[in-house]
């Protein structure tokens, strides 16, 4: 994919890892006292810490996660929300309103429509039923402005960076506001369309080159150059 240096050692399913690596099932499992990687990922040693980061794979909802969902269909008392995951979320209309739904006065079609992005929190999920969503918290609800880009959920930590370094670079260089959801959807709000285009390209670049080193500097340079070319 790129000629840049790898940010660690590439590991494939079934390879044994250092016993000090933290087990993170199902991506690092313990078999007979040995730590085994189950997905393609990077093994990194930094400041004495041994870490495994996966490079591929789906997002599985966890209670408490704040994610960006896409409304895919409307039920009688709820919406079905795609979470970029194998499991579709359910958002109840009573939760959305914060009070009981009254079909005589309330119109669900005026609240959320198919194709709307919503920022939601996962209230409960244990894989036996589909995730239950809520918008009853700060800054949750329908996304009304800006744009949403989708990347592979496994690449999300790279967009945030260590101690949010990548995110801070993105916000400073593009003058946009970013919300990075763990399910791989990123909400970007920019002062103008030109900057928005640059911000989207920068996010896509991070996704493409997530496994390489020195990415923050390259992204910074990329944004500065693009802004000069596009005059934004």
């Amino acid at each position: 994919m790129s000629k840049e240096r790898l940010a660690g050692r590439l590991v494939t399913p079934g390879e044994e890892l250092d016993p000090e690596v933290e087990a993170q099932p199902p991506f690092v499992i313990e078999v007979d006292g040995k730590k085994i990687a189950t997905v393609v990922g990077l093994y990194q040693e930094r400041e004495g810490k041994k870490h495994f980061a996966r490079l591929k794979g789906p997002y599985v909802p966890r209670p408490g996660d704040v994610v960006i969902g896409l409304v895919t269909s409307v039920g009688i008392m709820n919406w079905y929300v795609d979470l970029n995951s194998p499991y579709t979320g359910v958002l109840s209309v009573n939760d959305f309103l914060g009070r009981p739904f009254n079909p005589a006065v309330d119109d669900m079609g005026k609240m959320l429509r198919v194709g709307d992005y919503v920022k939601v929190k996962i209230l409960a999920f244990d894989k036996t039923r589909n995730p239950l969503l809520t918008v009853q918290d700060k800054d949750l609800g329908r996304i009304v402005s800006g744009t949403v880009v989708e990347i592979a959920p496994a690449k999300v930590p790279r967009v945030i960076g260590r101690k949010k370094s990548m995110l801070e670079t993105l916000e400073k260089e593009t003058e946009c506001k970013f919300f990075v959801a763990v399910n791989g959807r990123i909400h970007i709000e920019c002062p103008n369309k030109g900057l928005e285009a640059v911000a989207v390209l920068a996010v896509k670049m991070i996704e493409r080159e997530a496994h390489t080193t020195g990415l923050t500097e390259r992204v910074m340079k990329f944004i500065q150059e693009e802004r000069k070319i596009r005059e934004v």
Partner: peptide, 10 residues
């Protein structure tokens, strides 16, 4: 493996 589905080995 390319799809990122956890496998005990190839």
């Amino acid at each position: 493996a390319d799809a990122g589905i956890p496998m005990k080995g190839l």
